[in-house]
Amino acid sequence: MTAPARPAVELEGIHKFYGHFHALRGIDLKIGRGEVCVAIGPSGSGKSTLLRCINQLEVVSAGRVRLNGELQGYREVDGQLHQLSPRQIAAQRRRTGMVFQRFNLFPHMTALQNVMEGPLHVKKRPKGEARELGSSLLDRVGLGGLGGRYPNQLSGGQQQRVAIARALAMDPEVMLFDEPTSALDPELVGEVLDVIKDLAKAGMTMMLVTHEIGFAREVGDRVIFMDHGAVVESGTPHDVLTSATEVRTQAFLSKVL
């Protein structure tokens, strides 16, 4: 990234403990604007936890998370952290969009209502505007005409595309994808990956956790390999996926490739 502005996402010395379990062990990571960072690694390596720290679904035990320069979750005065109010934290979360492994669409709302929910009830946009935005986003993810269906009337791939549209409706600065294709039947993976690729081309800043190594290579500007709560290797897709220097990376790749 050549832009002089601060990176979109800055993670500084992130640690996360669950009781005595040390889930994240001092992670430093910067994601530039428009950059696509893909995290790979074995299950339980902390990839998803790291992602969830960025939008404060997990509270970090140590370290700082900054989004476009703004410290997340706290106000820092003379080295002392002061917790932000739930309202302020909610406002910070609006700047990121998240897509979950299990879609998490609201089952009591139609596809269109799911996409309109954020603009209408969080951003308080007028209904007509929200509807228009919702329809155009559903078109963008290839689901124009299916807005009236409930999630249980859609295939997994369609549901995940609605979930992406729902996240985009908040006009986020950063998109976070937590294993977006892991719960999908193999033949439905492609349609979701295509939507993500389009977003990458459009210059969206993204962090993805995935097991799709081929996709990581194709869409990632940078790939990080995580194991046991630490970033083991980080670099271009070629560096990490083709000419990995770390033994653990090589061992993991030999299993999944």
Partner: peptide, 24 residues
């Protein structure tokens, strides 16, 4: 995952109750 998805959208706790949890 339901309240999490609502949180990720930046919903307040009150909104999560009235829009997501109670109707479901």
């Amino acid at each position: 995952g339901q309240p999490e998805a609502a949180q990720a959208l930046g919903m307040s706790q009150a909104k999560i109750w009235t829009r997501i949890l109670i109707p479901q």
